[in-house]
Amino acid sequence: MIVAVFPGQGSQTPGFLSPWLEIEGVRERLEAYSDDAQIDLIAAGTEWDADRIRDTKVAQPLIVAASLVSWHALAGAQHAVDGVAGHSVGEVAALVAGGVLDDDEGMRLVGVRGRAMAEAAALVETGMSAILGGDSEAVLQRLSDLDLTPANFNGGGQIVAAGAASGLAELSATPPQGSRVIPLSVAGAFHTRYMAPAVDTLRAAAATLDPADPATTVWSNNDGRAVTGGREAVDLLVGQVASPVRWDLCMASFAAAGVSGIVELAPAGTLVGLAKRSLRGVPSVAVKTPDDLASATTLLTGGVE
């Protein structure tokens, strides 16, 4: 079983879309995506600096657009993918790859998602920090003591905390024993109660869609299980804005399904890194640039890079 995975916010870097524009048809595709998401994705992915693409309303459609560009660039090798999953906003790309939404629907929805979450994040000064290592129970107790939320359970000994900036500062100053705290370059406390206003906005946008049932296995961040209905998949994506990402459970589901390979679509690297710690021995390819497409195709069509 080969799984395609799609990364979340924080994976973008300045200029990362530039090499993809060398592929025929990509500029036109990105122009259409820009219209759907109401953001100049070509300028954002080739010219804008780190601060500008850190903005949630830019970062989210930019990441999903890159994922879909690289997904379509796999061309005939796509048929070898047996399931898809996305981390946080990557779920939008996963639903497109899984046949639940078409490209235009996905890009319109992520445009709404990014704007709504940016507006919610602006209400209170919040953020997110990754906690690497430490005893999980001790880490969760420390977060509770600081009124922080475990927003991402990423597996491999990594939990992402989210909440008020003051609590995150205290967490960094006195991390749980045996752990290391790394502040993340995101603009708010995503997947927490602070995002509740965005849920209502996204739910209204999602109600206008007519999702199809998945054409392949789609695993949800909500609890790691495979979702069989298109409407359910979209509803879970909406609610997940204000609830934790259970990527650890997604990887547990991959293992239970007998995953034999993982391909992470652009802007790739983070999810392959997590898989190498939690799914040891499973071959993986991170599609960061078009140069990585050959390795991904080899893995998808039966070879191992």
Score class of each variant (00 low, 15 high):
31 E>M: 10
111 G>I: 00
47 E>F: 08
119 E>F: 10
65 A>L: 05
64 V>H: 02
295 S>N: 14
30 L>Q: 06
12 Q>Y: 03
110 V>L: 08
17 L>W: 08
105 E>H: 03
214 P>F: 07
268 A>F: 01
204 A>W: 05
16 F>H: 12
220 S>E: 06
214 P>A: 00
138 A>V: 12
100 V>A: 07
186 V>F: 02
220 S>C: 01
230 G>L: 08
280 R>M: 11
7 P>A: 02
92 V>K: 11
301 T>M: 13
174 T>H: 14
27 R>Q: 12
202 L>C: 03
246 R>S: 03
234 V>Y: 02
22 E>F: 00
140 L>C: 09
127 G>E: 00
12 Q>G: 07
198 A>S: 11
237 L>K: 07
303 G>E: 10
26 V>N: 01
106 G>Q: 06
276 K>M: 14
172 S>I: 11
85 A>G: 06
110 V>W: 03
30 L>P: 00
304 V>Q: 12
222 N>C: 15
213 D>I: 00
288 K>Y: 11
159 I>C: 02
276 K>V: 14
91 E>Y: 02
283 P>D: 05
137 E>N: 15
206 A>K: 01
244 P>K: 00
5 V>P: 08
76 G>W: 13
97 A>F: 01
136 S>P: 14
158 Q>A: 10
135 D>E: 12
9 Q>R: 04
35 D>G: 15
42 I>V: 13
279 L>A: 06
95 L>Q: 09
218 V>G: 04
168 L>V: 04
122 A>G: 08
39 I>Q: 15
118 A>I: 02
239 G>F: 06
84 V>N: 03
82 D>L: 09
62 L>H: 02
38 Q>V: 14
291 D>C: 10
30 L>K: 09
39 I>N: 13
270 T>V: 15
222 N>L: 15
69 V>K: 07
278 S>W: 04
123 L>M: 14
131 I>N: 06
247 W>L: 07
283 P>I: 08
154 N>T: 06
180 R>G: 08
105 E>M: 04
162 A>N: 01
199 V>W: 07
189 A>I: 05
195 M>A: 09
289 T>F: 01
65 A>Q: 06
26 V>P: 03
289 T>R: 11
26 V>S: 01
139 V>L: 04
91 E>P: 00
201 T>C: 10
181 V>A: 05
8 G>F: 06
166 S>F: 11
9 Q>A: 08
191 H>K: 03
269 G>A: 05
208 T>N: 12
171 L>E: 04
28 E>T: 07
43 A>F: 08
195 M>T: 03
75 A>L: 11
110 V>H: 08
190 F>R: 06
241 V>L: 12
52 R>N: 10
137 E>R: 15
132 L>K: 11
204 A>E: 14
193 R>C: 12
96 V>R: 03
214 P>D: 05
298 T>W: 10
138 A>S: 13
149 T>A: 12
108 R>I: 03
49 D>E: 09
190 F>H: 04
55 D>N: 14
32 A>I: 11
32 A>W: 08
58 V>W: 05
79 H>K: 15
9 Q>D: 04
134 G>E: 02
30 L>T: 10
44 A>E: 01
94 A>G: 07
51 D>S: 14
70 S>Y: 05
198 A>V: 09
122 A>C: 05
219 W>T: 00
124 V>D: 13
281 G>N: 06
